[in-house]
């Protein structure tokens, strides 16, 4: 079986300007932050970012990497609003496709199933449709009910972070919620999973039930070992959210005078430098 181990920088080297990149996790929970930081270090630009947004979106906006955002919300959970997302939106950029959270899942599922769209009730009557005229409705051929025809959210690449994986791409979540990381991988052409620890295949079912094996080898092209790689978002049971650091991020992100200092201190070196600086 293929050995798919890579470094974060090798993952980013496989990405191309202008790609549509799906980012797993949810809000400020189990985000592939080490892979996001690798994008920040790279010259990659003009990305369409598809995310149940948290600080991943904020940091990519701060670095000017985003041409378009597709999201249901952007929140830091314990802090309602991500300051960088706010700042770029209130300045009039980048382009956005703002969806209902369920429509977002539906779009990933359509892509995963290689369907052009899936019908869903969410969105009817709301401004989701007014603000995105490319979204259409469809009538049921059985009873005439009008539904939203949610288009497939096809991804060039998916970046997700799980607790454990083997070198072949079987990967496992050990917390209470898988979020939508399997759908992100199924919706994408290139699929990269970072994890807290790469273990032997035989150890995967030792740390959790077989149902916790969210990703199988068919769904993954690259496996990256990034201990603390979801920091500062939560990655239970390995660690919870680093709330003091998230506050530090939000305060710096909300203050243009303080942001360069934050970048110098935490985001201008390697991942090892980052982990040392946040310790």
């Amino acid at each position: 079986m293929r050995d798919k181990r890579m470094t974060p920088d090798e993952v980013v080297a496989e990405l191309v300007d202008g790609m549509t990149v799906g980012i797993g996790g949810w809000g400020s929970r189990r985000k592939p932050m080490a892979l996001v930081r690798a994008i920040l270090r790279s010259p990659l630009r003009d990305l369409t970012v598809v995310s149940y947004g948290g600080p991943d979106v904020g940091l990519l906006c701060a670095a000017g990497k985003v041409r378009k955002l597709v999201y249901g919300f952007v929140s830091l959970d314990t802090i309602a609003y991500d300051p960088w997302f706010r700042r770029v939106r209130e300045a009039g950029g980048p382009k956005v496709l703002e969806l209902d959270e369920g429509m977002f899942q539906c779009g990933l599922r359509a892509a995963a199933h290689r369907l052009p769209f899936l019908p869903i009730r969410a969105g009817l009557g709301s401004d989701v449709l007014r603000l995105a005229p490319e979204l259409r409705t469809v009538r049921s051929p059985y009873d005439g009910e009008e539904l939203v025809a949610m288009p497939a959210l096809r991804l060039d690449a998916a970046l997700v972070h799980l607790n454990r994986a083997d070198r072949h791409g079987n990967a496992q979540y050990l917390g209470p919620d898988p979020y939508f990381d399997d759908l992100f991988c199924l919706a994408a052409t290139r699929r990269y999973v970072s994890c807290e620890r790469i273990v032997e295949t035989s150890d995967l079912t030792g740390s959790g039930p077989v149902q916790s094996l969210l990703l199988n080898r068919m769904m993954v092209d690259g496996v990256v070992e990034t201990p603390n790689g979801a920091h500062f978002t939560s990655c239970v049971p390995d660690y919870g959210r680093d709330e003091p650091f998230q506050r530090l991020y939000a305060e710096a992100a909300g203050d243009p005078e303080r942001w360069p200092g934050f970048v110098d201190r935490f985001l201008s070196g390697t991942e090892a430098d980052y982990l040392e600086a946040v310790r």
Partner: peptide
């Protein structure tokens, strides 16, 4: 919505 005076959460699950 194209250039909000104040960006809030987003649609979240409200439409659904």
């Amino acid at each position: 919505h194209a250039k909000p005076t104040r960006q809030l959460l987003g649609f979240r699950g409200a439409p659904g």
